[in-house]
Design a protein around this nucleic acid. Structure first.
Lengths: 160, 160
DNA sequence: TCGCTACTATTGACTACGCAAGCAACTATA
DNA sequence: TATAGTTGCTTGCGTAGTCAATAGTAGCGA
């Protein structure tokens, strides 16, 4: 009776295994490239990117955390690093003194621009190497359904 | 001219972003469940699983590392934990004294069996909740192409 | 047999997170 | 206003994983 259940489960379980492998393999490669070329992790990049498209290039830390799927403490530490590198600044919020904005600096914008130039090419190389256009579209769509609830905009290039 | 390049890249880049979100969201949830219910991480589970299906329920550490996409040192530390918990044992290899087998113990088999009972259900719940059968098959296939080269057998249930 | 290179495994130092706990500031309720 | 509950952020501590360096073993060619 267990094996009955198991065979029904095989599909989801197989999909998960494939997800684990695809993620490990692609992030290892892209993270290595991004950090060698620019000293950034993928999460760093994602944060800079979100900030660059936010109004006034700033966001509350909670919101940022939610968008890049980190916890509150994760975002604090990540931003510590970006602040030390001068890519992000802190800004206070009139009207609610609990919140501390993360604000993209000029240096941060520059960094994002130069990092994008190589990173986006590398991402696309990796994926186009293995899937054709139709497949890429489909996999993005299906993975979107597996993401956390609100399928936020997931485009990955800075606006300008 | 940059924007030209960017629009061509959008597909792979979007797929990658979706992969990151889908992975973070599903592993966080499943890891939490697996560790709450059984004190195992997903990697622990994967290792126990591979061992359970290997001849004589044992594998060289290098091979294990490659299968679960960890580095050599990563496997050493992971196995340290499983050894401390008595789920895995060390075995030496006549003929090549460099290699140390990781051997699944009886306790390890039991653990894997009981963990599977809940874990597989949870994995499947998560995925079936969001994708139908045809979609699951398709996403597993596409993700398979993104995995590291040799698309090893990725089934996720113990044999017995 | 001696060295040379390749491979397996481990260790130390480090990073990137997560969780739980805590503080400070806001909101609501009375 | 007091009091209670909630939210935003930070901090201490623990864990999982990486990389670089090391040691032991294997196997080869001179």
């Amino acid at each position: 009776m267990m094996s009955q259940v198991l065979s029904e489960q095989a599909l989801g379980v197989r999909a998960f295994a494939a997800l684990l492998r695809a993620h490990a393999s692609s992030t290892r490669r892209l993270n290595a490239q991004l950090s060698a070329d620019h000293g950034l992790t993928i999460s760093d990049y994602e944060v800079l990117l979100r900030l660059s498209r936010a109004p006034e290039r700033r966001m509350r830390r909670v919101d940022l955390a939610e968008e890049v799927l980190l916890t509150a403490s994760g975002i604090t530490r990540l931003l510590d690093g970006l602040e030390r590198s001068g890519l992000v600044d802190r800004g206070s919020c009139d009207g609610d003194r609990r919140v501390v904005y993360a604000v993209l600096t000029e240096a941060g914008r520059d960094k994002l621009r130069t990092a994008s130039a190589t990173h986006l090419v590398q991402v696309d190389e990796l994926f186009s190497e293995r899937l054709d256009e139709e497949e890429l579209e489909r996999v993005a769509e299906l993975l979107g359904k597996l993401g956390d609830g609100d399928g936020a905009d997931t485009a990955c290039a800075p606006d300008d």
